[in-house]
Design a protein around this nucleic acid. Structure first.
Length: 489
RNA sequence: GUCCCCAUCGUCUAGCCUGGCCCAGGACACAGCCCUUUCAAGGCUGCAACACGGGUUCGAAUCCCGUUGGGGACGCCA
């Protein structure tokens, strides 16, 4: 796949550990990964942990977990940006030495003051370069006096142009770019410096990141040049939007990848969905395996407009993936939510395993989330089920219900073998004998057996509950009707 | 405000580069029908879009300009 003449692509995902892995970050990682895998390149994970106050080890863990869950594997790293501080500072000093950067004595307070003044006049504020051309004697004096200073990059004149992998040719007038701070007054490197320094040292060939970084790109390109390095290719992915078309954020609901895991989404479904958010393989295929996505991936297919995150469609896709899952895998996936619902027992993995797998198979088509299995399985795992009020009122409350249920019980008691087909013919024969519609037996039976008006096919339900379970539930329903004569429960 | 990005059904998108095959295709959602013991699933059908205005051209969703609208960035955060 890799073009022989091209150097091996090296891409990176560089999250800052100030929060959990959110879907936006996950998608950025995913596109980097897809590109690397498609080209035979290297995918590097770099943790941008230089903001000590906001970063935490716990968040690093969370990001790693999120990526692992999605199956986005890195080839190098995780590398921690904080450990490269020496290189960052060294590059800054080199630029200072060559005049590409200069000391600035302006205090943040003073800057703030001037900014406000400019805004009051209706002007756009940009650092006015007061310190860019300080006379040598004054510069020396202030430096020797120990006056604090930061280091600023001297933005050259001209235009900065680059060819974005997704947006195409993009250009900026350098006059619109402020002389950015490289080293803070306390000597610590800032984002743009660290980022460029690391990307150079890690020999990154393609920087694939969110659209929100477009305005950093010309600054970074200028830094590459000042450092005598060849800039990489840049590709800016459109942002993921909320339903209000604004950048997806916490106020839109779940944004953390692991929240989706907890909510019952499959990693392969989220992966597939995220890949298709902003990228299309060009045909009408929507459900693709990772291998197919890797094979089909190209920046040609990456769109340039923001995409609204549609949970409905994600959920649909999750259902598609659920349908493809063999029951044996489902059993493991479903366990946490069963435990939480108090429905789990060791037997489900031992002597009742085959029965349990059959049950899952039966419920599969009706579930779109892993967590929905617990809801649907409840009637099968406990006999002391609650009847939904409307269901009971509609189908257990009618005058002949007790009698029909009793007759059904007696008929089912003699069925041999107690399987789906025999149960069905028994019920239909009974209906004919009683002169009622099959539905008049089926509907009360469904409520009696499951407590609800919605369930898998009733004969399959009977078969899987077994004769004993079925009769017990039928009896229980009859008692319920007799006792509940005081009115609707 | 300044700079940058973007603009096809409600949503994700195909088509746009290389104009005609597009009175615009697929998917989600929605509606209806079929199947049917319910609900799903499945099958079929329907609803629904080229933001607007100018050009260029025999011909524009596709190319150009403008307008409008939306978004992002404007930190000694990353």
């Amino acid at each position: 796949m890799a073009k022989m003449s091209m150097p091996q692509p090296r891409v990176r995902f560089a999250p800052s550990p100030t929060g959990f892995l959110h879907v936006g970050g996950a998608r950025t990682a995913l596109f980097n990964w897809l590109y690397a895998r498609n080209t035979g390149g290297i995918f590097i994970l770099r943790i941008e942990d230089t903001d000590v106050a906001r970063s935490s080890e716990e968040m690093v863990r969370a990001i790693l977990d999120g990526l692992a869950w999605l199956g986005i594997t890195h080839d190098e790293g995780p590398l921690f940006q904080s450990s490269f501080r020496g290189q960052h500072v060294a590059k800054a000093r080199a630029m200072e030495k060559e005049g590409a950067a200069y000391r600035c004595f302006c205090t943040p307070e003073r800057l703030e003051q001037r900014r406000r003044a400019a805004e009051a006049r209706g002007d756009v504020w940009r650092y006015d370069r007061e310190c860019a051309a300080l006379p040598e004697p004054e510069f020396r004096r202030r430096l020797d006096a120990g006056e604090p200073s930061c280091l600023r990059f001297r933005v050259p004149e001209g235009r900065t142009v680059y060819d974005d992998l997704v947006h195409g040719p993009t250009s900026f007038n350098n006059a619109d770019i402020e002389d950015l701070v490289l080293l803070r007054t306390d000597g610590s490197p800032t984002y743009n410096l660290s980022c460029v320094s690391d990307d150079i040292d890690m020999r990154i060939t393609h920087v694939i990141r969110g659209d929100d970084h477009i305005s950093n790109t010309p600054k970074q390109i200028l830094l590459y040049r000042a450092l005598g390095a060849e800039p990489p290719r840049f590709g800016h992915l459109p942002l993921i939007l909320g339903p209000d078309k604004k950048r997806l954020s916490k106020r839109h609901g779940a944004v953390s990848v692991m929240e989706y895991s907890r909510a019952g989404y499959l990693p392969e479904a989220l992966f597939n969905f995220l890949a298709l958010l902003g990228w299309s393989p060009g045909n009408d295929r929507e459900i693709l395996t990772k291998a197919e996505m890797i094979e089909a991936f190209s920046f040609e297919g990456v769109g340039s407009r923001g995409a609204v995150f549609d949970t409905e469609k994600l959920t649909w896709m999750n259902g598609e993936y659920l349908k493809m899952k063999p029951a044996t895998e489902l059993a493991a996936l479903v366990r946490p939510s069963f435990e939480e619902a108090g429905l789990w027992s060791a037997g489900l993995e031992a002597q009742r395993r085959d029965w349990f797998l059959k049950l899952l198979e039966l419920l599969k088509d009706r579930c779109r989330l892993v967590t929905e299995f617990a809801r649907d399985a409840r009637p099968f795992l406990t006999e002391s089920l609650d009847y939904e009020p409307v269901a009971a009122a509609r189908h257990l409350g009618s005058p002949g219900a007790v009698g029909r249920l009793a007759a059904l019980r007696d008929a089912l008691a003699r069925v041999e073998p107690f399987d789906e087909a025999s149960c069905e013919s028994a019920l239909r024969e009974l209906a004919a004998r009683l002169g009622v519609k099959a539905g008049d037996l089926i509907h009360p039976a469904r409520v009696a057996l499951t407590g609800r008006m919605v369930s898998p096919g009733i004969f399959a339900v009977m078969a899987i509950m077994g004769r004993e379970g079925t009769l017990a539930r039928l009896n229980r329903a009859a008692r319920f009707i007799e006792e509940g004569s005081g009115g609707t429960p």
